[in-house]
Amino acid sequence: MKTYQGSCHCGACRFEVDMDLDHVRSCNCSVCRRRGALIHRVPKSALRLHTPLENLTVYQWHSRTAKDYFCPRCGIMPFRIPSAPTAQEKAEGKHPFVGWAINARCLEGVDLADVPVKLVNGADLS
């Protein structure tokens, strides 16, 4: 387990997170494909905010169960709360994830070329 320091581009949003960065997730849904974030999920207790959530902008769409937190100054999304499972996912036995999805591109000192990427087919979820 390692503690990483993270921030948005301009530094107005700062955080630290404890995790084993053994992979990142790349989703092909319409939002993630355009965003280009590489995500690693962590339990709620692993993220420590140095910037209050109230200082960030929240974007929600579709089921409105996910919350994407953005810096209102530079527009970067350092972390998000993942969406609840769809009906299809629930039928397949998927349980809700309770925690944070960290944008690994916002972590200091990380060479993402050395981190395996797992592809997520979010485009096919209804």
Score class of each variant (00 low, 15 high):
Ser30Cys: 12
Arg64Leu: 14
Trp100Asp: 00
Asp111Asn: 06
Glu89Pro: 02
Ala87Trp: 13
Gly36Lys: 08
Lys2Gly: 09
Asp124Phe: 11
Ser26Ile: 14
Leu119Lys: 14
Val31Cys: 07
Leu38Glu: 04
Ala84Arg: 15
Asn121Ser: 12
Pro43Ser: 05
Leu53Thr: 11
Arg73His: 15
Ser7Glu: 05
Arg34Gln: 10
Glu92Ile: 07
Pro116Ser: 02
Ile76Ala: 12
Leu49Ser: 03
Val17Tyr: 00
Val24Asp: 02
Ala46His: 10
Glu108Ser: 12
Val110Ser: 00
Tyr59Thr: 08
Tyr59Ala: 10
Cys10Pro: 04
Gln5Cys: 14
Val42Cys: 02
Thr65Leu: 01
Glu89His: 07
Ser45Met: 12
Gly93Lys: 02
Asn121Ala: 14
Thr57Asp: 08
Lys90Asp: 08
His50Ile: 13
His50Gln: 14
Ser83Glu: 12
Leu107Ile: 01
Ala104His: 02
Val42Ala: 06
Gln5Val: 14
Thr3Ala: 01
Val98Glu: 14
Lys67His: 09
Arg105Gly: 12
Leu53His: 08
Pro72His: 04
Ala113Asp: 15
Cys32Glu: 06
Leu125Met: 10
His40Glu: 05
His95Glu: 13
Lys94Asn: 11
Gly93Ala: 03
Arg33Lys: 12
Ala101Asn: 03
Arg41Gln: 13
Arg73Lys: 11
Gly11Tyr: 04
Cys27Ser: 00
Asn103Val: 02
His40Ile: 01
Leu125Trp: 10
Arg105Ala: 10
His9Gln: 06
Arg80Met: 15
Leu107Tyr: 06
Arg80Ser: 15
Lys90Val: 13
Leu119Met: 13
Lys67Leu: 14
Trp100Arg: 07
Ala84Gln: 10
Ser7Asn: 09
Thr51Gly: 07
Pro52Gln: 05
Met77Asp: 10
Ser63Met: 11
His40Cys: 03
Asn121Val: 11
Lys118Ile: 15
Glu54Cys: 14
Cys32Gly: 04
Asp68Trp: 11
Asp111Ile: 00
Arg25Asn: 07
Tyr69Lys: 06
Ile81Lys: 08
Asn55Pro: 12
Cys32His: 07
Asp22Val: 10
Ile81Cys: 09
Ser26Leu: 08
Trp100Glu: 01
Cys10Val: 04
Val110Arg: 01
Leu56Ile: 01
Cys8Val: 06
Arg25Tyr: 06
Gly93Asp: 03
Leu56Cys: 13
Phe79Arg: 02
Cys29Ile: 02
Met77Asn: 11
Cys32Asp: 04
Ile102Tyr: 06
Glu89Val: 06
Ala101Ile: 03
Arg35His: 15
Glu92Asp: 11
Cys32Leu: 01
Leu21Ser: 06
